[in-house]
């Protein structure tokens, strides 16, 4: 790829409506070649709809969507030859073996027969699936399945890769393995757009992050920039009940500006967690308010959301949704859940 400054992926004012649901309400984003871009948001925010537009699966109602300078609506075939799609809902065939799945994708990418065979073996080895390659996928563990899914998206060596919630539902160990694999891919110069519900995942993998909500980008920047907005750490003080939390808010906010009530807790973004915690406890003790619990932690997507939108991301977040949750692209289903 040339060292051109044109973005590898670009959305400009893209809208998409399914029935009553405005899935995308004018999304703008640009991904530089060879970088990783994280699209962060809760379920239903529009992340997946944005990916479906960019991967030519659905057409946008308005706006411009380009991959490698090619408009997805006017050159869908050329776009498809340059992209790979993997993740939560781009499924593989349960009944076929790992090798058969990869060969099928190779054939459908119009590779020569010898290349189809060679590439499948190569990918099985690279993704540590050689031993399992001749077993049907239904015998695979969740982590193996995701690895094969990722391998399937790489068969035709696409320069641009889309990963939809690549590690949702995986155990921590498998998640770490998959992250390592993704980092290797990126080191090869692949441009990657990934969607996730986890700030940690975006933080681990992405050069830039866009936070998306109700079909629009509400913040974007590097992970460091987003965290700087949040403060380095989050201080969370729990109380006996909601009423106590509300009565304690003023006291906490006096020491830690930006504090907000969340259920029975008050939380505040702070720069210096330990010192600020002592200040807060001292102030609460002075005010005669009992504290039920105290936590100092890294900011989460939830904190970003509370900060940016004033409401919790978890309201419609469903990390336990089945791995293939409702991708059915019929009009009526898409209307309810277009961006699972």
């Amino acid at each position: 790829m040339s060292g051109s400054t044109a973005p590898a992926i670009e959305l400009a004012g893209v809208t998409k409506r399914f029935g009553d649901v405005q899935a995308l309400a004018g999304v703008d984003l640009q991904v530089e070649p060879g970088t990783v871009y994280g699209l962060l948001g809760p379920n239903g925010a529009g992340k997946t709809t944005a990916v479906r537009v960019l991967t030519t699966i659905i057409r946008p109602d308005a706006g411009r969507a380009e991959v490698l300078g090619l408009d997805v609506t006017t050159h869908p075939e050329r776009v498809r030859a340059s992209i790979g799609l993997a993740g939560q809902y781009a499924a593989v065939d349960e009944q076929l073996t790992g090798r058969e799945n990869l060969r099928l994708v190779g054939q459908l990418c119009h590779q020569p027969r010898a290349e189809v065979v060679r590439r499948a073996d190569e990918l099985l080895e690279r993704f540590s699936l050689t031993d399992a390659g001749d077993r049907p996928l239904k015998t695979f563990s969740g982590g193996m399945r995701r690895r094969l899914d990722l391998a399937a998206s790489l068969v035709h060596r696409p320069p641009v890769l889309f990963l939809v919630e690549p590690t949702t539902g995986l155990d921590p160990r498998s998640r770490q393995d998959l992250w390592d694999l993704i980092r290797e891919l990126v080191a090869d110069g692949t441009t990657l757009l990934l969607t996730t519900q986890y700030l940690e995942e975006a933080d681990q993998l992405a050069d830039r992050i866009a936070v998306i909500d109700h079909g629009a980008v509400i913040a974007d920047g590097t992970a460091a920039e987003l965290k700087a907005q949040m403060g380095a750490t989050v201080l969370e003080v729990a109380f006996a009940d909601v009423a106590t939390a509300h009565s304690a808010l003023e006291t906490v906010a006096g020491v830690a500006p930006g504090a907000e009530v969340d259920g029975i807790a008050v939380r505040a973004p702070v720069d210096d967690g330990a010192r600020r915690a002592m200040d807060v406890l001292r102030a609460l003790d002075g005010a005669g308010i009992d504290v039920a619990g105290l936590t100092i932690r890294e900011p989460s997507l939830d904190d970003v959301f509370l900060k940016l939108t004033g409401r919790r991301a978890e309201e419609d977040l469903d990390p336990d949704a089945p791995a293939v949750a409702d991708p059915r692209p019929t009009a009526d289903v898409a209307a309810q859940g277009g961006s699972r």
Partner: peptide
């Protein structure tokens, strides 16, 4: 959002993919 030049980075990246 910055507006970048309208260069077509890798339209030629995969020639066999042309229509």
């Amino acid at each position: 959002m910055t507006t970048t030049a309208t260069g077509h980075v890798a339209a030629e990246a995969r020639p066999e993919a042309a229509e």
